Simulated assay, not measured.
Amino acid sequence: MHGTPHIVSDVMTHMVTAVGREDTFKEIVRIMQDWKVSALPVLEGDGRVVGLVSEADLLPKEEFRDSDPNRYTQLRRLSDLAKAGGVRAEDLMTAPALTTRPGATLAEAARTMARARVKRLPVVNELGMLEGIVSRSDLLKVFLRDDEDLAEEVRREVVSYLFPLPESSVRVQVHDGVVKLAGRVRDTSLVPVAARLARAVEGVVDVDFELEDREGSENSPAPNPNPGTTTTGVRDSASGAR
């Protein structure tokens, strides 16, 4: 029933510059400046990703340039101190590189980034060869979808499936990514399901409801699709979790 989800290859940057293990510190900085990037995949052989070197990996050299760290700092930041003395990519990179695949969903890539607290992921094929890079900003591109495009998908994938005519009459409006479903439905128990499915549409920011029982019975209010909010009368106007 669902539309095909966007995948990493839909939003990733395909043209990526990279460095090799033997590239020097100064060369890495120069490439970052020339390409206006903050991280570079490190490759070996015919393009297999073995690490990632970022601005964060380079900064310890400046941070510890004129200081003599105490024992506590030495123990707590062994990795940074090692990188402060690094002169080649293989000394500076974070390895092994955390990567994703072109066919991974945007949600999967987002979870990987969030759990590892990283800003980007090299995209590799099944052999570990570099195919692109995906960043946090790339994953947010789905929220640029046109409101009418979102409305059409919600009508097609949610409303027509759960609330078909003539038993129900549901209007779909979208403004700045927020979906509003309003009208009369035959089975109000499906409202929480509609909430979940509508929020799952990529690019949807939130979902609001003004749905009521088709018979208009005050004894059959639409169930609250968002626990923790208040439903009054037969109208339900509940905003989704943010």
Rank of each mutant, 00 (worst) to 15 (best):
H2A: 14
T4G: 02
S9C: 04
D10Y: 04
V11L: 11
V11Q: 03
V16N: 07
T17G: 08
K26E: 15
K26I: 03
V29W: 10
V29P: 02
I31L: 15
M32N: 11
M32Q: 10
D34K: 13
S38P: 01
D46Y: 01
L52T: 09
A56G: 15
L59M: 15
L59H: 08
P60A: 02
R65Y: 12
D68P: 00
R71S: 12
L78D: 12
L81E: 11
K83M: 09
A84L: 11
R88N: 13
R88T: 14
A89R: 07
L92E: 08
A97I: 09
A97E: 05
R101E: 09
R101Q: 07
A104C: 04
T105Y: 08
A109E: 07
R115K: 09
A116M: 05
V118F: 06
V118Y: 03
L127D: 14
G128H: 01
I133G: 00
L139I: 02
L140K: 06
L144M: 13
R155Q: 14
E157S: 13
V158M: 09
S160R: 14
E167Y: 12
E167G: 06
R171E: 15
V172M: 03
H175L: 03
G177Q: 13
A182E: 15
G183W: 00
R184P: 05
S189A: 14
A198L: 09
A200D: 14
V205R: 13
F209I: 05
E212T: 08
E218W: 15
S220I: 15
T230R: 15
V234S: 01
R235L: 10
A241M: 10
R242G: 00
